[in-house]
């Protein structure tokens, strides 16, 4: 079965990002397909490589990046939500005259059309977070 995942909460404050990650892993482990993981609202904070949690805690951002690398998963951060919250890739940083970018490896910034497409293309779209 083909799944899409939407993550609406940032890391650490709520469990939603953890649950979304574990669900995504479980989907892959069970031999199903992930069409896309889309990050919206505060969920865009899952995609900053500046995250540096204590060493004895899980690294939520790196975990996503590794998943994207190992399984070729499409991790998409909503551009409008990202700009509000200071998540930028090189192009967005340049376009907005910022002095640096912070997007994590394996993530890309794109529009809400990617969420709509994720809903259309997948058999199930699961939403994590409030």
């Amino acid at each position: 079965m083909k799944f899409s995942v939407m993550v609406n909460e940032g890391p650490y404050t709520h469990q939603a990002a953890d649950t979304a990650y574990h669900f995504t892993r479980a989907v892959l482990d069970a031999g199903h397909e992930i069409f896309r993981v889309f990050f919206y609202h505060d969920g865009v904070h899952n995609g900053t490589r500046m995250t540096t949690p204590p060493q004895d805690d899980r690294h939520i951002v790196d975990r996503w990046s590794e998943l994207a690398h190992d399984h070729d998963i499409d991790l998409v951060v909503c551009v409008a939500a990202a700009q509000r919250r200071g998540i930028l890739d090189k192009d967005e940083a340049k376009r907005n005259g910022k002095d640096g970018d912070n997007i994590a490896p394996g993530f890309r910034i794109s529009g809400l059309g990617q969420l709509i497409e994720a809903g259309i293309e997948a058999d199930r779209l699961l939403v994590f977070g409030d």
Binding site: Y40, H41, A80, A81, R84, G111, L112, G113, L115, I116, E117, I120, D130
Partner: peptide, 19 residues
Amino acid sequence: TIYPLEGLEVALIGAAFDQ
């Protein structure tokens, strides 16, 4: 909260995709 505003943005994009 920002949910209504960002929700509206999704609804408008969804409509633009002929859904």
